[in-house]
């Protein structure tokens, strides 16, 4: 079980690996599309890498609800519980 801080840090690493964005840019209130300029293909790559890293399942139909980094962190935390 990872804390929200640990999930955020892990997610930031995944985003950095995929897009080159600095990990510090990945903050809870940021929107993946509006603020971080992440397209749908990159988002799917991030989702699949997050599934592996946090050992959770993120259904495809759930991905569209993950608008902000906080949405993703909260979903992963909930899925781990």
């Amino acid at each position: 079980m990872a804390s929200n801080e640990e999930i955020l840090a892990g997610l930031a690493e995944i985003v950095n690996e995929e897009t080159g964005l600095a990990t510090e840019a990945v903050e809870m209130d940021k929107s993946f599309t509006e603020d971080l300029d992440i397209d749908s293909i990159s988002m799917m790559t991030i989702v699949v890498n997050a599934e592996e890293k946090f050992d959770v399942k993120i259904p495809d139909e759930e991905v569209k609800n993950l608008k902000t980094v906080a949405d993703a962190v909260n979903f992963i935390a909930g899925a781990q519980a």
Partner: peptide, 10 residues
Amino acid sequence: PRRVLPMTVP
């Protein structure tokens, strides 16, 4: 299939 990269086709 879940692990096939979304960027594979392009």
